[in-house]
């Protein structure tokens, strides 16, 4: 049992490595274009609303905390608390996606598309029609898009885990799936910890 737990956990960590390397491509693209066009990137971080990004950061950090608390609870076989924390995590994740949706739709309404279709208008976005702005927004959309997909996948898994906990599948002797889901969710949080300042602040 412990052997199996150890193996699963190691497998999860290795999976997280592949996730990190997957995102690394985007971070490299970001860095390369930032080094080439620092003034553009400086200017364009202003095009994103740091209040929305900041709110999302807090929400995700909160969800990370509640996931950690759910593991803490199941280790003490407190299934009720575990389910509660998992549900709070889900609510946080949903809030994150709602804000993301608002951000995306506002941009699309103002012609801020990734790449060739980039044609910003409206008093907030028009000033950002500078050379290499399409690259910034392409990177923004791809990075946050892939991250968003990870959040959605995470929500699905957490919902499933919450249901299984409620059905009594886990206790302090066996909670591997909760632990692995937690690791994944923390990684999603870590990616956002980097995306927020890189895209919204600097």
């Amino acid at each position: 049992m412990d052997q199996q737990f150890d193996a699963s956990k190691m497998g999860m960590w290795i999976f997280l490595v592949t996730e990190v390397l997957l995102f690394s491509g985007m971070f490299v693209a970001y860095t390369v274009y930032r080094v080439w066009h620092p003034e553009t990137f400086d200017l364009l971080s202003g095009a994103l609303d740091w209040r929305l990004g900041g709110f999302n950061t807090l929400v995700l950090l909160g969800s990370s905390f509640t996931v950690a608390m759910s593991i803490h609870s199941i280790q003490k076989s407190d299934k009720k608390a575990t389910v509660m924390y998992l549900v709070i995590t889900l609510i946080c994740a949903a809030a994150f996606m709602v804000v993301k949706y608002i951000e995306y739709t506002t941009k699309f309404e103002h012609g801020v598309f990734p790449g060739a279709h980039f044609a910003p208008h409206g008093e907030h976005y028009a000033p950002f029609d500078v050379p290499y702005a399409p690259q910034f927004f392409s990177i923004y959309f791809v990075m946050t898009g892939i991250h968003g997909v990870h959040v959605l996948v995470g929500m699905g898994v957490i919902a499933w885990i919450a249901i299984r906990t409620a059905k009594g599948h886990f206790d302090s002797q066996y909670y591997t799936p909760i632990e692995l889901t937690g690791l994944y969710w923390h990684l999603v949080d870590i990616i956002w910890i980097f995306l927020f300042p890189l895209l919204y602040l600097i």
Partner: peptide
């Protein structure tokens, strides 16, 4: 793929 479908310009 995105370069091909959305012309993201990377």
């Amino acid at each position: 793929l995105l370069e091909k479908t959305l012309q993201i310009g990377i």
